[in-house]
Simulated assay, not measured.
Amino acid sequence: MKLVYVFDAYCGWSHGFSGTLSEVVSRHPELPVEVVSGGLFTGHRRVPIREFGYVQGANAKIAELTGAEFGEAYGRLIADGTFVMDSEAAARGVAALRGAAPARSAELATALQRAFYVDGLSLSDPATYRKVAEEAGLHADAVVSAFEGSEARIAAGADFHRAASLGVTGFPTLLAVAGGRVTPLAHGHATADEVDRRLASARTH
Results as ranks from 00 to 15, higher is better:
residue 94 V to E: 11
residue 63 A to S: 13
residue 186 A to W: 00
residue 116 F to A: 00
residue 47 V to R: 13
residue 10 Y to W: 08
residue 202 A to E: 13
residue 176 A to F: 14
residue 162 R to G: 10
residue 52 F to E: 11
residue 173 T to M: 06
residue 125 D to R: 08
residue 175 L to G: 08
residue 101 A to Q: 06
residue 201 S to V: 04
residue 68 A to F: 02
residue 40 L to G: 00
residue 178 A to G: 14
residue 104 R to L: 04
residue 20 T to S: 01
residue 169 T to H: 14
residue 27 R to H: 00
residue 172 P to N: 10
residue 138 L to N: 02
residue 144 V to S: 06
residue 61 K to D: 09
residue 133 A to T: 08
residue 51 E to C: 12
residue 183 T to L: 04
residue 100 A to K: 05
residue 71 G to L: 06
residue 32 P to T: 07
residue 15 H to K: 03
residue 97 L to Y: 15
residue 99 G to T: 15
residue 32 P to E: 07
residue 78 I to P: 06
residue 122 S to T: 04
residue 101 A to N: 09
residue 13 W to N: 11
residue 152 A to E: 14
residue 202 A to I: 01
residue 30 E to T: 03
residue 74 Y to T: 03
residue 141 D to C: 08
residue 11 C to P: 03
residue 50 R to P: 06
residue 141 D to R: 11
residue 167 G to P: 08
residue 129 Y to I: 05
residue 145 S to Y: 12
residue 68 A to N: 13
residue 5 Y to S: 06
residue 146 A to Q: 08
residue 55 V to N: 09
residue 164 A to C: 12
residue 142 A to L: 09
residue 13 W to D: 00
residue 154 I to C: 07
residue 93 G to M: 11
residue 189 H to N: 09
residue 79 A to D: 08
residue 59 N to L: 01
residue 153 R to H: 05
residue 63 A to W: 00
residue 48 P to Y: 04
residue 15 H to N: 11
residue 157 G to Y: 07
residue 86 D to M: 12
residue 28 H to C: 07
residue 2 K to Q: 14
residue 150 S to Y: 07
residue 1 M to W: 03
residue 70 F to I: 13
residue 53 G to S: 14
residue 166 L to A: 09
residue 171 F to C: 05
residue 170 G to H: 10
residue 48 P to K: 01
residue 192 A to K: 10
residue 130 R to G: 13
residue 158 A to G: 11
residue 146 A to K: 09
residue 78 I to C: 00
residue 82 T to G: 14
residue 30 E to I: 07
residue 121 L to Y: 09
residue 12 G to K: 03
residue 106 A to L: 05
residue 53 G to P: 15
residue 28 H to N: 06
residue 205 H to Q: 15
residue 151 E to D: 14
residue 201 S to T: 14
residue 178 A to L: 13
residue 57 G to H: 09
residue 78 I to W: 10
residue 113 Q to Y: 06
residue 91 A to G: 09
residue 33 V to S: 03
residue 187 H to D: 08
residue 82 T to F: 02
residue 125 D to E: 11
residue 28 H to W: 01
residue 14 S to T: 12
residue 13 W to V: 05
residue 115 A to K: 05
residue 183 T to Q: 03
residue 25 V to T: 08
residue 179 G to N: 11
residue 53 G to W: 10
residue 122 S to A: 15
residue 145 S to G: 15
residue 18 S to Y: 03
residue 27 R to A: 03
residue 57 G to E: 09
residue 131 K to H: 12
residue 23 E to Y: 04
residue 38 G to Y: 04
residue 86 D to V: 10
